[in-house]
Structure formats: structure tokens, C-alpha cells
Design a protein around this nucleic acid. Structure first.
Lengths: 360, 360
DNA sequence: ATGTCATCTGAATCGTATT
DNA sequence: GAATACGATTCAGATGACA
């Protein structure tokens, strides 16, 4: 084992990187500050306050400052990365475009951008934007002519029910027992990543015995998953509170039995198909008339997937309930579409879409 | 109708943009070329061609020229975009980081990055990477302090079965009858976007009658969906074959019924009813007692529409906030009125008044 | 033990019209 | 232009109290 392996370097990111030998690591995972630029406070509709990221380490004076920082640590990473190694970075729209540009400018060759689709993101409380429901990872090799990087294609396929692993990963955010807490029961780190995410990163692009470096180690998720998967880790972290937590986590982590590293994916739920997506796809056109099973009521489909009927508008479910004067209604089976002489429930269209999605 | 509305300008992107009046469009959708091996399609701001990108081109030159091109058309777009307008761009990892960086550098303010998750992407044949199963869109306002952009929150929520729309959109790629073919049955345009994607873009961030500009019009998907949804379009395209196909598609496109393109508006669009006018009309009498949802607090309505409670007086909102000890409160939904055995929010009275006003 | 209900929280660039 | 007042807005999941 080499001197830096399986340790946390308590130091500034750049200074620590400079101490590592050139070309000495096989995989880098970097989750740098995002430069969030949050202004005021944000309240939920129930008046509770959202605990935003206001840590000192996420404060930059502007894009120029952030780009300079990004360029510096990515250059330092480039030096320590082996020629066949690859690097992952993660970010949101605040910083991912800056990181992608710097990566390309430094000569890294992007292999994929990968989207982490969160199953349980924080909603948009003010209704002013789309729910920010994903983060973006970039996976890159050192050079455009480097073809010998590690990609465990079969392992990824196995993880995905024997279908090629796609560039969008559906995973929940880090909550519950996995989330590190401080003495008061508050989150210790504002942006702790889920182990499932690192599991996929490390399993896909490294081999047992490889060295995995995380220059923004935080509470050590990368190290924990690397250790469990039989890889060596090197962490770099400046905050003593994070280091302490990371080392405790690491001490409590047992490497998995080499045979047990394989993980089976959970069953995929039947995909939800919003009625609106059927309108969007042109399978039911705006302006189409829908009927209830006894043709007593008629409703008109609007471009946003809502129905208009009897001077009211709403979802297929709400309007089904409305015309019947009941509390709830399954609009999929209630509303019918004329097809020639026949009337078919709109659920039939949904089943056709589901079949299409499933075979894709 | 203005001179450029509902036409395709057969010209170079930059030259056509320069002919459009400043601040004259409400929404821009741009799907620019992203292949760096553009073989002469890349133009500098002075219209000179960038040569040599397809052979022995060096990475730095390639990106630098692509950035120059990107900066030029985004600057030109910025000039023609109205102050309350927004812009969408779409790309893959080859170019989206460059575009995002240039957008931010020009002062655009990113509202969301949106992932188009393809249900039927092309598989990765070599097994050397993850299946490239998504593309990225960026939605941006002109400035960080511009908050009056259009976002049809309720319509997006309606499209998604009454859950707020997320930043990841699951849509199939453009195939079948929708895909434009040339005389030999080959695809006419290499990257024709599905109409469903444009449906969501245009419906979310523009209103009927708005002007939608597409500076890389291709076979006219943006125009077709804009026309169908009752928006004006302006297309810019240089290739005669694409223009011909686009104009044929547009001629065959019928606008939807105007009622069908109306969209659920939400409470913000409703006329404001002062609480005092409800008291004035005698719908709630002075002296009436109002209660919070848990009946912990009671307040008395006064003749001027203010409330008195716990030795303080003020508006329904102020008093709601006061008794809860919070900054702000929606008094309409907070305060309840006794009706027989039940308690109903005073918002119900407001809705009755609104219905009355609407039919008057 | 089990179920129900209330409460809490997460990388967030989260108003607008009137005076 | 600045200050003030109005009043709109949330999803999934974990946790814990309590029946």
C-alpha cells in the first residue's frame, strides 16, 4: 500500500493535490462547491424556512473567480490522474457549464454527461420554475485518444436488468439514517451525496484495487463506497468537523466480500404516464371531445392536458368527479374517445404508450 | 401582424437576426449545430468562414471558434429578445457546456436546465460508454433581476397530472410519420426534434399571440407547434431544402381551436377582490368572528374590512401573520367563518364574489 | 405490534401591483 | 424610484407521537 492510500489529507485541495505523485490515481470523483449565489431566504408555503447553503466555502465573487478556482483544481487533478484514468465531476446548472467548459479547455475528453434524476427533490415552492429535480455529472477521460479507460459495461448492464445502463440515473437523495447529523440532530454537511450514486460511479469506472481520489471529501461518502467495493481511497478535506465524521464512518465500514459486490436492481415500477404527455405527443389532439360512459357529459381536451366542461376546467380526474358530483374519479377509465363508431376509454391510449416505453 | 411574423427568413442566422427590430420577440428556441467538425458551417461574427476544423484541427482552435460563433448568435438573440422574454437552447455534452457558459457570460440568468430523457435513444454499440439517452435544454431570462417572464405554472402542472412539472422530461425521439423524409426516404434533417418537446417549451413559457423565434429553423418544428398553439413564429434558415420542407409542413398545419390553447391560469390571474368590499356588500357583517384553522385564535371583522384581535388591528393578512408570529400570511385561506356546524375559509366568499363579477 | 396522523426537511440562483 | 401592501405557493419520504 502506498503512503497516501486510505487516508484523509487534512489540507487545502490544491496544496494536498500538489503533494500527490503524478499519475498516481485511477479514478477521481469531485463534488466541488456549486457557486449557488442564493440571495434572500426562501419560505415554504407553510412559512417554514428552507435551510439553504450559506457556508463560507460556497462564496465566490463572480464567475471569473469561480472559473479560476475550477481551472486550478482541475489542472492539479489532471497531473495526478493516470493516463488511463477517468474523472467524474458533479454539479447543477449554477456551475456545471463552467466545469464542462474548463474540462474541455484543459484537454479532458468527455465520455458521457450523466443525469442524476432525483426521486424526491425539493419542490419549487413559489411556482416560478420547473422543479429542480436533477443534477448533472460529467465523466471524462484524460485525452481524446485515450481508449483504454475502465468501463465495466457488463456490471452496469447487470445493474439495469440486463439493459444497457443509460445516461440518466434515477436515485433518491441522501436522507434517513445515511445522512450524517451533528450533535443537535441537524445535517452535518449541506450537500451529502447518496452512497448509491457513488456506488454506480465507482463500480462503472474502476476495478478492485484501484485508487479513487476525492478532492472535496466532505463526510467521506466516496471513501466509504470505495472501501466497501475493495478500492483504495484518498480524501482531501479542509473542515475538521467533516474529517472527523468521515473517519468515523470509514472506521465503521467493512469491505464487502468480493463476491458480494454485485448488486441487483430493484423492480421498476410501472411508469406513470400523465394525461398531458399524451396530448403533447399528439395522440389526442387539443380540441378533441371526450365522453363519459353513458354519453351524458362531454368535455373538451385543452393543450395543457386539462379538460373543459360545463364552464369548469381541471384534470381528467377532477372533471370526472365534477360532472358526477362525487369526490373522486379515475379519469382514465371514465372518459372515452370516439374511434369510428365505438367509444374507447382513454386508458387504452395510456396502455399503448406504456407498451411503447417498456420496449424502448 | 408585423412584417416578419409567420415567415421563414432564408438567410444566414446572424444577418437575419440583425434585420429584426430590437426587443421584438417574446420567446426564442435555438437548436444550433453542435458538431465541431462543421466543414465550413461555422461563421465568425464578420461572416468569414472558419476553416480546417475537419482535419488536424486542434482542440483549442475548435472550441475557441465554436465559442465565438455561439457568442455571436446569442448576442444577436439578446438584442431581439424583449425584456420579459426568455430563451431556450438545446444541445448535448458536445456543446451544451459552451452554450451555458456563454449564456451566463452574456448576462442571461438561467432559470432551469431541463433534461430531455429519451424513451427510445440509439443504443451504444461499442459498449464503451453509457447509452447517451438524453439531451439538455437551458431556459434563461435576460437578466437576474427580470422576474416578469412568462411561466405557465398551472398549465405545466396540468400536463403532469396535477404535480408540478419537473426539470426532467420523458419524451420519445422524432420518428415515424412525424419525421421528414427526402425523395429517397432518408431523413431530411439529422436532428429533427419531436413536436412534443416544442409543445412543452412553447406552452410553458409563452402566451397565445406571442412571437416565437427559432434562429436555426431546420424543418420548422418550432413554427409548426407555434402555429398550432396560436403563437406567431419567425424562422431563420439557410438551407433551401429545409426551408421548402418547413413551408410545406407549415402550410399543412392548422391552428388549434383558440379555446383549446387557453391554459389553466391559476389564482394570480384572477381579479383582486379587497376584503373590505366583501364587508361592504354585506356578505360578511361587521362584528362577525373569524377563526384560524385550529380555532386557537378569534378575530372580529370591523366595518372597514380590518380585523381586531388580541389588542391589535390590521388587514386579514397582517392579523393572520400576527397571531401566528410569522412574517407573512394569506388571510384568505387562514381565516375561517362559521357556517352552521362547519367552518369555511373566507376565500370561499371571495370565490362567490368572483363568479358573480364574471357573469355580470 | 400496527396503523394513522402530524411534523419536518432537502445543493433553491423561487413576487408583484399599487401608492 | 422606493416603500408598502397584498397574498400565492409543495413533493416524497422519514420520523415520531399516539391510538
Amino acid at each position: 500500500m502506498r503512503p497516501f492510500h486510505d487516508t484523509v489529507l487534512a489540507d487545502d485541495c490544491l496544496q494536498a493535490l500538489d503533494r500527490l505523485p503524478a499519475k498516481s490515481v485511477d479514478l477521481i470523483f469531485a463534488d466541488p462547491p456549486y457557486n449557488l449565489q442564493l440571495k434572500g431566504e426562501l419560505l415554504r408555503p407553510d412559512n417554514s424556512r428552507v435551510n439553504g447553503v450559506d457556508e463560507q466555502w460556497d462564496r465566490f465573487t463572480g464567475f471569473e473567480h469561480y472559473d479560476e478556482f475550477t481551472r486550478a483544481w482541475l489542472e492539479a487533478c489532471r497531473r495526478v490522474l493516470s493516463d488511463t484514468g477517468t474523472i467524474w465531476v458533479i454539479g447543477s446548472y449554477h456551475n456545471i457549464f463552467r466545469m464542462g467548459t474548463v474540462l474541455q479547455d484543459l484537454g479532458f475528453w468527455i465520455l458521457n454527461d450523466v443525469v442524476w434524476r432525483k426521486t424526491n427533490p425539493m419542490p419549487n415552492f413559489r411556482g416560478k420554475r420547473f422543479t429542480n429535480a436533477h443534477e448533472t455529472l460529467i465523466w471524462a477521460a484524460k485525452d481524446s485518444d485515450q481508449k483504454r479507460y475502465t468501463f465495466n459495461y457488463e456490471a452496469m448492464k447487470a445493474l439495469n436488468d440486463d439493459l444497457q445502463m443509460r445516461s440518466d440515473w434515477v436515485l433518491p437523495i441522501c436522507t434517513g439514517g445515511e445522512r450524517m447529523k451533528d450533535g443537535d440532530g441537524n445535517k452535518l454537511h449541506p450537500t451529502q451525496k447518496p452512497e448509491s450514486l457513488l456506488h454506480r460511479v465507482i463500480l462503472s469506472s474502476s476495478n478492485p484495487g484501484d485508487v479513487v481520489l476525492d478532492p472535496f471529501f466532505g463526510t467521506g461518502t466516496t471513501g466509504v463506497v470505495a472501501k466497501r467495493l475493495g478500492r483504495h481511497y484518498i480524501g482531501i478535506e479542509r473542515e475538521p468537523a467533516y474529517i472527523e465524521a468521515a473517519e468515523a464512518r470509514l472506521a465503521a465500514t467493512e469491505p464487502a466480500d468480493p463476491d458480494a459486490v454485485k448488486v441487483s436492481a430493484g423492480k421498476r415500477a410501472e411508469p406513470r404516464i400523465p394525461f398531458g404527455s399524451i396530448v403533447e405527443r399528439g395522440l389526442i389532439k387539443p380540441g378533441t371531445t371526450l365522453y363519459d360512459p353513458r354519453k351524458r357529459h362531454a368535455a373538451k381536451v385543452r393543450a395543457d392536458g386539462s379538460l373543459a366542461c360545463e364552464n369548469a376546467t381541471g384534470s381528467i380526474h377532477k372533471m370526472g368527479a365534477h360532472v358526477q358530483g362525487v369526490e373522486a374519479c379515475n379519469g382514465w377509465t371514465f372518459w372515452h374517445l370516439r374511434r369510428g363508431k365505438d367509444f374507447v376509454p382513454i386508458d387504452m391510449i395510456r396502455q399503448e404508450v406504456r407498451a411503447e416505453v417498456a420496449t424502448a
